[in-house]
């Protein structure tokens, strides 16, 4: 039996238009239901923390908390800074600076991952870019991997003293968050 013959009105313009309107309405109704799961206004407002660096001596590190993430802050020794600077960026698995303070795709030199005049300080989001574990290397006795930076125990990613990926499955360098020195011994993250 032919549906057309039976219900000639099904393809009527008005019916089609009505159904189309219902469909569009239902689709737009989805928006608030999806949006509600995004970070809310109060979460987004918790955007900055201040960290006092004065107690951190050369060679020491502290971990701060920002947006629920660990922030690695290390006061690097001269040797560590030099080791980080004397790397040919082209040989790195990820040659991007991954620095949110810089506008675009800068090369991943150590200078591009630190702030001028404060080169001994490295500030990183302490989350392995592989699958989100927290690398070792902050505490004194931690294994730091063969490049003296950080070592992720989950899958063996090795980062250098600039937080760049050197070996292992992680695809990217550790991110440098937005931060600035408010005084010589204080930074504001975010």
């Amino acid at each position: 039996m032919s549906t057309e013959a039976l219900e000639p009105n099904r393809r009527d313009f008005l019916v089609v238009a009505g159904n189309a309107f219902v469909a569009v309405g239902a689709a737009s109704l989805l928006w608030p239901f999806i949006q509600q799961m995004n970070p809310d206004a109060s979460t987004m407002a918790l955007s900055s923390v201040e960290v006092d660096l004065s107690p951190v001596k050369e060679g020491q590190a502290i971990t701060a908390m920002w947006r629920g993430k660990p922030i690695f802050i290390r006061n690097r020794t001269k040797a560590e800074v030099e080791a980080a600077e004397n790397v040919d960026v082209k040989t790195l698995p990820d040659d991007n600076a991954r620095n949110e303070n810089l506008p675009g795709d800068e090369p991943g030199t150590d200078a591009n991952r630190t702030i001028k005049g404060h080169e001994n300080w490295i500030v990183l989001i302490g989350i392995c870019t592989h699958l989100g574990c927290i690398p070792k290397g902050q505490a004194m006795g931690d294994e730091r991997g063969e490049y003296g930076g950080w070592f992720c125990p989950c899958h063996g990613s090795v980062y250098d003293t600039s937080g760049r990926i050197r070996k292992g499955p992680a695809p990217r360098n550790l991110e440098v968050p937005t931060y600035a020195f408010t005084t010589d011994t204080k930074i504001k993250i975010g």
Binding site: P32, Q35, D40, A41
Partner: peptide, 13 residues
């Protein structure tokens, strides 16, 4: 109140 004020479209839901 958090829902009414801060959650995206929370007031509507």
């Amino acid at each position: 109140e958090h829902i009414r004020r801060d959650v995206n479209y929370g007031w509507m839901l």
